[in-house]
Amino acid sequence: MNILILGYGKMGKIISAIAEERGHTIIGKITEENISDLDALDGTTIDVAIEFSQPEAAISNITWALEQGIPVVSGTTGWLDKKPDIERLALSKGGTFFYASNFSIGVNIFFKINRYLAKLMDEQPSYKVSMEEVHHTEKKDAPSGTAITLAEDIINKVSRAKRWNLDTDPIDNEHNILISSKRINEVPGTHTVTYQSDIDDIEIKHTAHNRKGFALGAVLVAEWIKDRKGLLTMNDFLSF
Rank of each mutant, 00 (worst) to 15 (best):
N108G: 13
I225W: 03
S92F: 01
N61I: 03
N108Q: 15
L178V: 04
G23V: 13
V193T: 07
T207S: 14
E33V: 12
R22I: 09
T45D: 14
T25I: 03
N176S: 08
A57G: 08
I86V: 14
L80N: 12
E152D: 13
E67Q: 08
T192R: 04
I59T: 08
H135A: 06
D42H: 06
V158L: 00
G78H: 01
E123I: 04
V219R: 00
F97Q: 04
S74A: 11
V221P: 00
H175G: 03
S36I: 15
K128D: 12
Q196Y: 09
K157S: 10
V107P: 04
S126W: 09
H206R: 04
G75H: 11
P55Q: 06
F214A: 04
I5G: 02
D172P: 02
H135W: 13
T76F: 02
L216S: 07
R211C: 07
D201S: 15
A40F: 15
L4P: 02
E33T: 12
G95P: 00
A65R: 03
G106Y: 15
R183I: 06
F110K: 03
D153Q: 14
I179K: 00
G106D: 15
N176A: 07
R88E: 12
I59N: 06
S92Q: 12
L231N: 05
E186A: 05
S130H: 09
T76A: 03
W224Y: 12
L38G: 08
N2R: 07
E20Q: 10
G78W: 01
L89C: 06
S16Y: 05
G95Q: 01
F52R: 02
I199Q: 12
T77F: 04
K112M: 12
E21S: 08
P188V: 05
I30M: 03
S101F: 12
P84L: 09
L4C: 11
A147C: 08
R183N: 07
F240K: 05
I86N: 01
W164L: 06
R115C: 03
F237E: 11
T168R: 08
D47S: 09
A222F: 00
I202A: 07
L6F: 15
G43M: 06
E138P: 01
S126G: 07
S130T: 11
D122P: 01
R22M: 14
I35C: 09
F237G: 09
S159K: 06
A90R: 00
I14P: 00
L238M: 12
T168H: 08
T76M: 02
T168M: 08
S74G: 12
R160Q: 02
Y8G: 04
A118Y: 02
Q54G: 09
H191R: 02
I15Q: 07
G213R: 04
I46C: 01
V134P: 07
I179G: 00
H135F: 10
F111Y: 15
T63E: 13
P170A: 03
A65Q: 06
F214H: 08
A218S: 10
P55D: 06
K128T: 14
G78S: 01
R211H: 13
I155P: 13
I113V: 14
G75R: 06
E133Y: 11
D81N: 11
R88D: 11
R22S: 10
L4T: 03
K83E: 15
Y99K: 09
K162F: 11
S60G: 05
S180F: 11
R228Y: 09
D236N: 11
T207D: 15
L120P: 05
T96F: 10
V73W: 05
F103Y: 15
N61K: 03
Q54E: 15
